[in-house]
Amino acid sequence: MKNKKAILYIMLLILGAALYIVGIYMNEQMRNGLPLFFMTLGLAIFFNSIERIRKLARGKNPDIRREMEIEAKDERNQYITTKAKAFAFDVMGYVFSAVFLIYALMKVDFMIFFVLAVSLIGIYITYTIYKNKLTQNT
């Protein structure tokens, strides 16, 4: 099973690199958003595959696998992870605000501004819904 996963992740790694290279090539040929889409998608798939392959490789060693299981179940580590995610979420709000301001000063096309705003609003709506759901369960 793990061997099939490793093959899948290696294939996804190659696909991600290929998409990135296609995006670079397309960027030279045409000047629209499609090449950037391919480049972004390629990088996301590439780095996600690297992380998955790294986890599979670490899981083969029984000592490291046992240590990873303990770390995943440890309440202190879960608390630290949750705090780090919360801080990153707070920073994201400031970063998005700065990007809004920069885009406004650059007089960027309204559609770009709109997509960014909708994505930020969607993130905060997801946060609110999930927080309310967790609050009701406790």
Rank of each mutant, 00 (worst) to 15 (best):
K133L: 03
A98D: 01
V115E: 08
N3G: 03
I70V: 14
T40Y: 07
I64R: 11
L19V: 03
E71R: 13
G23H: 06
F47S: 07
L13W: 05
A98C: 08
S119T: 14
R58G: 01
M26E: 12
K133M: 08
E69I: 06
I7P: 00
F113T: 13
V118Y: 10
V108K: 15
M26K: 15
F110L: 06
N27C: 06
K85D: 08
G16S: 01
N77Q: 10
G93P: 02
G59F: 04
Y103R: 14
M68Q: 12
F96V: 15
I125S: 01
M26R: 14
I24Q: 11
Q136V: 01
L120P: 05
N61S: 09
Y94R: 07
G42L: 03
F87D: 02
Y25P: 02
I45Y: 00
L134Q: 07
L12D: 01
G122T: 03
V118A: 15
N77L: 08
S97A: 15
D109K: 03
I21Y: 09
Y94S: 09
V95Q: 00
A44S: 11
I102L: 13
M111Y: 13
Q78R: 13
K107H: 15
I64M: 09
E75Q: 12
A86N: 12
A57C: 05
M111D: 10
V22Q: 12
L8R: 03
G33V: 13
